[in-house]
């Protein structure tokens, strides 16, 4: 006997993610899913972003990490609430983990939640965790071939941050090829050239983020 099913394998995850979207949307909170390879600079970007924005809005961070709380400790030093999720070897965050983490945050007071995903260009891209948008960090020391090798994580991103541009003189990174590949995979995404070391490009990133947060606030107030 044949049984026709036509069921989405990630249905359960997606259902929880939709729940989270509705809950965060109702409070006008913007949620950002930060993706990228291990060592691409996600936590460093976060540290800079928190230092720049924490006085103008209320931010909380969720840190996904395989086993440690090292990144969460770095974030806590910025004086913002941070919740650690240890995946115990799991290669990605899923919506249920984020739901559990959110239970530990005082949502009513928040404008922005940034979720640093597990460092990995493959697995996290497939899992919606209730975010408004994904942002992918690619550091130039990883090489310009990564967008074509890991297309999904770049396709899903609304902004791609090319980090560590201070190291360009010391690498053979082909910026033209990288930009060309990125804009063909993800034609609508913002491409931001940044150095968390020198600060180059960070102001553009903050403006991009502020604008996305403001758009959501306007939309959720219009819904009220």
């Amino acid at each position: 006997m044949e049984i026709r099913v036509m069921a989405n394998i990630l249905e359960q995850n997606d259902r929880i993610a939709d729940e989270l979207k509705a809950a965060l949307g109702a409070q006008g909170i913007f949620a950002l899913n930060l993706l990228g390879s291990p060592g691409s600079g996600k936590t460093t970007l976060l540290e800079n972003t928190l230092a720049a924005l924490k006085d103008e809005m209320n931010i909380a961070v969720i840190e996904g990490d395989l086993f440690t709380s090292k990144d969460a400790e770095r974030i806590a030093r910025q004086g913002v609430p941070v919740i650690q999720i240890n995946t115990g070897g799991g290669c990605h965050l899923d919506a249920n983990m984020v739901r559990n983490a959110l239970a530990g945050l005082e949502l009513a007071a928040l404008d922005l939640i940034i979720i640093e995903n597990v460092g990995n260009l493959v697995c996290p891209a497939e899992f919606d965790i209730g975010e408004d948008c994904k942002v992918t960090v690619l550091s130039i020391t990883e090489g310009e071939d990564k967008p074509l090798k890991y297309p999904l994580v770049f396709k899903q991103a609304e902004a791609v941050i090319l980090n560590k541009v201070d190291l360009l003189p010391y690498t053979s990174f082909d910026m033209e090829a990288a930009c060309e590949d990125l804009s063909s995979i993800s034609p609508g995404a913002a491409l931001l050239l940044v150095s968390c070391r020198t600060g180059e490009g960070l102001l553009d990133w903050y403006s991009w983020l502020r604008q996305r947060i403001a758009q959501k606030k306007t939309r959720s107030q219009a819904d009220d």
């Binding site: 006997m1 044949e2 049984i3 026709r4 099913v5 036509m6 069921a7 989405n8 394998i9 990630l10 497939e126």
Partner: peptide, 10 residues
């Protein structure tokens, strides 16, 4: 797509 399309069962 990430989909189970059909099953064959006994």
């Amino acid at each position: 797509e990430l989909r189970v399309e059909h099953l064959e069962v006994e």
